[in-house]
């Protein structure tokens, strides 16, 4: 049974705890957010690479876990959720992944998705699930989870950029 995806892109009560530390260290939370953007970009690339080349589930599990940790710590709960799916699919404790329609419907109303993000999302979601029960299925589902994580990342980045009045690279 897959845990339902949280609705809000950012769990502000968590992020605010970090923003609270800006008192002592101005821009601390913003630096962290920027750092996360870099880290997420890197990690997504690594996952993508892993899916294409080694297809090592253990490695994928670590990558998913890694990104989940920092996403959750920053309150980026939808990313963390998607990363947890990658983690669990890699460990084969989950065997399904919701459809993209289901997932998109969980987004808060009025959430804007840029065309380019939507395109990447659709591209990654392409393909038909393998009929076999082997690693192929998990890898396929991981790829879809990655697509979701990536979309969520873009949404979170947008929201953070709005908050900090500065686009986060």
């Amino acid at each position: 049974m897959i845990e339902p995806m949280p609705r809000e892109i950012i769990n502000w009560s968590i992020l605010e705890e970090i923003i609270y530390m800006d008192e002592d260290d101005p821009d601390f939370s913003k630096r962290l957010a920027s750092q996360f953007v870099v880290q997420a970009d890197t990690t997504f690339a690594e996952i993508s690479e892993e899916l294409k080349t080694n297809k090592n589930l253990e490695e994928l599990e670590k990558l998913g876990h890694f990104l989940k940790g920092s996403a959750a710590a920053l309150g980026l709960q939808r990313i963390a959720w998607a990363c947890e799916r990658i983690q669990n699919l890699s460990r084969k404790v989950e065997k399904t992944f919701p459809t993209k329609e289901e997932l998109l419907s969980t987004l808060p109303e009025g959430t804007q998705i840029f065309d380019i993000d939507m395109k990447i999302y659709d591209d990654l979601n392409n393909g038909t699930p393998p009929t076999t029960d082997g690693d192929e299925l998990y890898l396929f589902l991981i790829k879809r989870a990655l697509a979701q994580a990536y979309l969520e990342f873009q949404l979170a980045r947008n929201e953070l950029s709005v908050y900090y009045h500065d686009y986060l690279y």
């Binding site: 530390m21 002592d24 962290l32 890694f66 940790g69």
Partner: peptide, 14 residues
């Protein structure tokens, strides 16, 4: 994870 390090570290510094 450096981000988590930073958060905990900052908290402890605080």
């Amino acid at each position: 994870n450096v981000i988590n390090q930073a958060i905990l570290g900052s908290f402890l510094r605080k």
